[in-house]
């Protein structure tokens, strides 16, 4: 009887496994804004894209993600970009103002997918022009960093104009101030007060009735667990960034070099 159950369960598992999609899109990186699987961007470029994005997101909820991959897994680049955009939830959910720059160096192709909310300021013809005039000239010489930066900066110009803002981080004036504002919004600051109150009450109760035993044992557990807590985030002291829930509908343009 038991064996029979085991058989059924494994059968179900096999079916589930077969039914799941065969291709797997990559998961976003820790910093979210740059995913460089093809390893074509240097640290300074990545840092610039991340810093400007942190400020941009704080001000407008817009997100501009640069992703490089090695393989399209047999998909058309525009379909791949649309699905990746969908899975990563790029841009704010209220305005759908995300943008994805997808680069596949091995295939000599790139695609810029524009979220619904940015289609007005970045229509396909403009995106096409950015690709042909700013990005491809560098890419065709193998200079990916300059190409990405030129295209990214031009897109930022349009986005800045759309929201009537100026990003301080573009000129290096960004000092991380926005980041702390961004991670500790008003609501989370309020809940922090409650958290601190809760901890104080807990400590009083614990030391009064248990002689502090609960506190000590918890500190021991956390102390052990905290090593490597950041995982592979490297030297970064930033918090993890995520997609804001924005959507796209296949708009944008692509190019080859």
């Amino acid at each position: 009887m038991r064996k029979l159950h085991f058989k059924y369960i494994s059968l179900i598992l096999i079916i589930l496994f077969l039914a799941s999609p065969t291709y797997a899109l990559p998961q976003p990186s820790y910093d979210f804004y740059v995913y460089d699987a093809a390893n074509i961007l240097n640290k300074a470029t990545e840092e610039y894209i991340i810093q400007t994005n942190l400020e941009l997101y704080e001000k407008t909820e817009a997100q501009i993600v640069v992703a490089t991959i090695n393989d399209l897994e047999g998909m058309d680049i525009n379909r791949y970009a649309t699905e990746l955009f969908d899975q990563w939830d790029i841009g704010g959910s209220r305005l759908d103002n995300g943008l994805l720059i997808l680069i596949v160096p091995a295939e000599g192709q790139l695609w810029i997918e524009v979220g619904y909310g940015l289609e007005g300021v970045l229509p396909d013809s403009i995106v096409k022009r950015i690709i042909e005039n700013r990005i491809i000239p560098y890419f065709s010489q193998g200079d990916y960093d300059s190409g990405v930066l030129a295209g990214y900066d031009e897109i930022l110009n349009y986005v800045e104009k759309e929201y009537d803002i100026e990003l301080k981080s573009r000129t290096g004036q960004y000092d991380g101030e926005y980041e702390s504002d961004f991670t500790l919004g008003y609501r989370s600051r309020l809940s922090n007060i409650f958290l601190i109150l809760g901890i104080i009450i807990f400590l009083i109760v614990d030391f009064k009735f248990f002689g502090g035993w609960l506190t000590y044992s918890m500190m021991r557990t956390f102390g052990r667990g905290s090593t490597g807590y950041r995982g592979n985030s490297g030297s970064s002291s930033r918090g993890r960034s995520r997609g804001g829930g924005g959507r796209s509908g296949g708009g944008g343009a692509g190019g080859r070099w």
């Binding site: 525009n78 379909r79 649309t82 229509p123 396909d124 013809s125 995106v127 096409k128 022009r129 509908g249 296949g250 708009g251 944008g252 343009a253």
Partner: peptide
């Protein structure tokens, strides 16, 4: 014409997505 071409290509893609 080039711009129209880019718009049309993008629209094709939107149609297939939607």
């Amino acid at each position: 014409f080039l711009e129209l071409q880019a718009e049309l290509a993008g629209t094709e893609n939107r149609i297939s997505t939607e």
